[in-house]
Simulated assay, not measured.
Amino acid sequence: MIIETLSTFPSMYDSVMGTSMMRIAQEKGILQFHAHDLRDWTHDRHRTTDDDPYGGGDGLVMKCEPIFEAYEDILPRNPATSGHLPVLRPHTIFLSPAGQPFDDALATELAQEERLLFVCGHYEGIDERAYALADRTISLGDYVLTSGELASMVIIDAVVRKLPGVLGAETGALGESFADGLLEYPQYTRPAVFRGVEVPPVLLSGDHARVARWRRGMSLERTARLRPDLLDGVDLSPADREFLKSLSTEPGV
């Protein structure tokens, strides 16, 4: 997969993309990443990417001209193409509080794309005309961040970890929270007893079927307790429904 970003602060990506899974994905050749500096497409000595908003108001608005010029220049730079191969057009994403809420299903969908380009806003926002380039607009949630770079890092991480080989196994991400609509079950490691608190005995039993049933039950219990809203979107088996029913009849529940 090719992932590119277009922003006024490309150095913000250095740490995140140079460590842990993001670094490993690049070393394995699974991911190609490049952070473009929007200021490279400005034409004044101050390399200006923003201006005062029409109609007045506080703050500055990012200009549309450098964004369009950058997009048109980045498009044929695709590092995966050469010679007479067709240009792989990027699936272009803008980050905005007005966008589609980001979730695990959307991360899975984006992981199927071959090339992603994130256009990251700053200041009070982006000139509305630039959104003509967007294939989709995404929001992390009902809050405002300092910049789109921060939001894009979260999305990139969630997408890249779904690429085959990144986590070291084809099924590496399958048991994580939200992968099947449920929160993940509790995890434990050594020691078996810490300050009087024991690891659940079933996890030490070596019985894989029992462990699988326990994990499914704990995912259901944790989801019902912490995020019951998620259950409406889960394909529950008769056994799952019976288990949830038993939870509701327990004393104190």
Rank of each mutant, 00 (worst) to 15 (best):
D73E: 12
I74Q: 10
N78D: 15
N78F: 03
A80Q: 15
T81L: 15
G83A: 05
L85T: 14
V87R: 14
V87L: 11
L88H: 14
R89Q: 14
R89T: 12
T92G: 02
T92L: 09
L95F: 02
S96Y: 00
A98Q: 15
A98G: 06
P101E: 13
D104E: 14
A105G: 11
L106Q: 01
A107W: 09
A111Y: 12
Q112R: 03
F118Q: 01
F118G: 02
C120K: 10
C120E: 02
G121A: 01
H122F: 04
Y123G: 04
I126L: 05
E128P: 00
A134E: 10
A134G: 06
A134R: 05
S139Y: 08
S139I: 02
V144G: 10
L145Y: 08
T146G: 15
T146S: 15
E149Y: 09
E149W: 13
L150S: 11
A151F: 01
I155R: 01
D157F: 00
V159K: 03
K162Q: 15
L163Y: 05
G165V: 06
A169C: 07
A169H: 14
E176L: 03
F178T: 00
F178S: 04
A179L: 05
L182G: 08
L182D: 07
L183R: 00
L183S: 03
Q187S: 08
Q187K: 07
T189D: 02
R190T: 00
R190N: 03
P191F: 02
P191D: 01
A192G: 12
F194W: 14
E198S: 14
E198Y: 08
